[in-house]
Design a protein around this nucleic acid. Sequence first.
DNA 1: TTGACTGGTACGATTCTCTGACTAAATTTA
DNA 2: TAAATTTAGTCAGAGAATCGTACCAGTCAA
Lengths: 148, 148
Amino acid sequence: MPEEPNVGLLLFIAYRAMEKRVLDAVVDAGFDITPAQARVFQRIGPDGTRLGDLAEQAQVTKQTAGFLVDQLERAGYVERVPDPTDARARLVRIAERGRQAMPIAAAVVVEIEAEWTAHLGQRRMADLRDALTRLREITDPYARRPTQ
Amino acid sequence: MPEEPNVGLLLFIAYRAMEKRVLDAVVDAGFDITPAQARVFQRIGPDGTRLGDLAEQAQVTKQTAGFLVDQLERAGYVERVPDPTDARARLVRIAERGRQAMPIAAAVVVEIEAEWTAHLGQRRMADLRDALTRLREITDPYARRPTQ
DNA sequence: TTGACTGGTACGATTCTCTGACTAAATTTA
DNA sequence: TAAATTTAGTCAGAGAATCGTACCAGTCAA
């Protein structure tokens, strides 16, 4: 395998590199957040997202997602508000402190994507994004469902 | 971000899908192994790999890698042998039980890659692999170093 | 041969994750 | 409409993964 790594490993290497840099930047900027918390946070939609949906997208149990959201909430990154459409549910929404952290993460993502584009060339980078997006149709059970 | 996920998230989704299926298959075949253990195991080279190298490649500390290798060793998947070139070091090598598990994982990888190829087309799949391999040059600090 | 460096381990503390059991609201069924 | 079922989420407890600090032993250079 070291001779010709499978695609899974290649995906992991690139993913991990981006995650690490983004997280380091956010942490350096004074936002103490862990990788697991970030993986959940990242999935919160503009209008809030239910815990169960977050769990499903982040591929963890509801309990784990709840545990992480508790921490994010205590740190002021997110808040839980009642879901107007279902009294059982609550929506996890990005709160003030979370909103402050987002541009920092976004900037690093832009920076890294620029580096990758420089290395691969525009064409290959666009193709990469395209391939991954298409792949999502068969690898992301969540994506197959309409978002509401 | 939910509107147009960044490449990091796309990488994660595909990676996670493959990891899960491979691991499920291996576990179903009676090999009890955890994701963290598998991530280390996967990096062991044909002639054995030092603990520190495994740690670096799997992006964990030496202690964590040691902890996981301990478990893999106890379960019979790997063994530690002295490194003939350095008395301080030991090589982690795949042992009998580990060797038995490998074809199962390999078969699932082949299966998944075939599915992905069917979905994307040969060309796009080849391009994806190519792009990820190139990307490794700038995202995998370990890869930049000659293997010995 | 001494001092700096390297490969690895030991210990202790946190963080992450899961299973199982439970409450309450919504939905379906009879 | 009352009962049964499903769905959203929480609680409690346990096990797995991870890290930081400190440490030991072997190597290497001066």
